[in-house]
Design a protein around this nucleic acid. Structure first.
Lengths: 147, 147
DNA sequence: TTATTAGATTAAAATCTTTATAAATAGTGT
DNA sequence: ACACTATTTATAAAGATTTTAATCTAATAA
């Protein structure tokens, strides 16, 4: 089902003149099939069996390439490592303060915020990012069970 | 002019039973007077002349203390180090993609986003964060001059 | 086809940020 | 003054990411 998105992503790569190596293909495929937002290390570990010789630097290098051509977004939260999201359609994230889970949700794009910010700050605004923080359902349940 | 905010912050510290050491005082003062959003290392370097023996761990420790009692916010963006913001009033950030400058701006709080996210994701949402990204005025000027 | 070259990968070391540890110091209350 | 606790310091350690240099691969040109 995500074959289509993978093909599209590969086309974007080709269009940018980026070589499609087996490692790149694998990282991209993993990102697209992953419903979560994996860290570089998670990707590295998951592909270890398929590519026993792959270096972690390769994962980082390729994630940078993907980011630079706009194929993936790098998400930096409080925790130590970056997470990578290849869902480039407009969406926002809900993040659980307890377990770190990230859930996507949609909301009409906040274009007004961008234009107001432009007026107030003098910036040329190109995009924005938003997250809500709180407690996910599972963690809520766990809390309730304790008491 | 920021004497008032400093005094307020010191009162908050006292109220939380946190000792006001010279180092803490200095870090807090620096944060309040700084209109930017400094990194731990920037704070450390700026206070080096006043406190030649201060350890960088002290800066981190105290920033954590301040964060825990809600006196400062930790901002994590794409770049490697966290930035610290002691402006706890509700505001958002505009971040320059070129030079990294951070400018504050105000916008009516996005309460609707929080409640919609709660409905869609099942989370208990406690707060949110938003930034806009683009090019600041100075960097725009530089670009124009080039051509 | 073969040689050349640019790009990509690998493995290792280096760097950078942040945290942990243990000893020294300073502050507080008795 | 004494004991107790919090804080600072210096150093080491951990963890994430980047850099380096060597090697390998794939595309191109002769």
């Amino acid at each position: 089902m995500s074959d289509h998105r993978l093909k599209e992503a590969l086309d974007t790569l080709k269009g940018s003149g980026v070589r499609i190596t087996p490692q790149r293909h694998a990282v991209l495929e993993y990102l697209i099939n992953s419903m979560s937002h994996p860290t570089a290390d998670e990707i590295y570990k998951s592909l270890e069996s398929k590519f026993p010789n792959m270096s972690v630097a390769t994962v980082y290098n390729n994630l940078r390439v993907f980011r630079e051509i706009g194929l993936v977004r790098e998400l930096t939260y409080g925790d130590s490592s970056s997470r990578f999201d290849c869902n480039t359609t407009d969406h926002y994230h809900a993040i659980c303060d307890h377990c770190g889970k990230i859930v996507d949700f949609h909301y009409p794009s906040l274009d007004e915020v961008e234009s107001l910010a432009e007026q107030v700050t003098g910036f040329d605004v190109s995009n924005h990012r938003m997250e809500v923080y709180g407690t996910c359902e599972e963690c809520k349940d766990k809390e309730t069970q304790k008491h």
